[in-house]
């Protein structure tokens, strides 16, 4: 299909294969991205779950951080889950570490505790955009040593809540989740991201756009 967006998944470390499987189930072909040059021609990129201290170290030598900022500036859509959300955040605490600052949120790492505190739940509130075709308003949530979104700026749109916290949010073409939609068989969150990525895809076909 001509309007299929070109989607990549950052494959430095983490559950990138699970994201690739979920995106395949959405009917999209996925490219693994390990070097900045592989971002060319992509409309959207998924930053998977993993360990952010390791991811930051691995990105140091390849210039990947600068490349991701440039990818965003060039109209690319980004979707970060768990560690991916931490990388995209404006500010990170517990402990403090650098981040890309592509979404105006503050994030606390491992905020719900250690592995023994990892939990499964369902969304207490879900934005209408995410409701299923059958009107399904609940969404399964898998939290693994999860971060918590502790502050979001005025341009950030909350999309789901659990335990009183925003667990899914969007700012422009950036989507972040503190849980792992790739660990459940529900495709709605990934489909929502594909919609964001298609916006760049459209822009590419008609360069006259803003």
């Amino acid at each position: 299909m001509a309007s299929d967006p070109a989607i990549g998944v950052l494959a430095l470390q983490g559950d990138y294969a699970a994201h690739a499987r979920t995106l395949s189930a959405c009917g999209v072909e996925v490219r693994e991205v390990r070097k900045p040059v592989q971002l060319a021609e992509l409309d959207g990129l998924v930053l998977p779950g993993g360990e952010t201290t390791a991811l930051l170290k691995i990105m140091e030598n390849t210039g990947m951080e600068e490349a991701l900022v440039a990818f965003h500036a060039g109209g690319g859509a980004l979707f970060g889950t768990c560690a991916g959300m931490i990388l995209l955040a404006g500010k990170v605490c517990s402990p403090a570490q650098r981040s890309l600052g592509l979404v105006d949120i503050d994030v606390e790492r491992n905020a719900y505790g250690r592995q023994i505190d990892s939990f499964e739940s369902v969304a207490e509130w879900l934005a209408p955009d995410l409701a299923g075709e059958d009107g399904e308003t609940s969404l399964p949530l898998v939290f693994i040593r999860a971060p918590r979104l502790v502050r979001s700026g005025k341009d950030v749109q909350p999309l789901a809540r659990c335990r009183g916290d925003v667990v899914l949010a969007r700012q422009g073409r950036v989507l972040v989740a503190s849980f792992h939609p790739e660990m459940s068989s529900d495709l709605r969150v990934h489909r929502f991201f594909l919609k964001l990525a298609r916006q760049k895809n459209k822009g590419r076909l008609s360069p006259a756009g803003p």
């Binding site: 983490g14 559950d15 779950g49 993993g50 939990f119 693994i144 040593r145």
Partner: peptide, 21 residues
């Protein structure tokens, strides 16, 4: 008050460690 650990949560952490050392 912690809920039971599901297989998804238990293997889930291993998924997050993939491609790592």
């Amino acid at each position: 008050g912690r809920p039971a650990a599901t297989l998804r949560l238990k293997t889930g952490l291993a998924e997050m460690l993939k491609g790592g050392v």
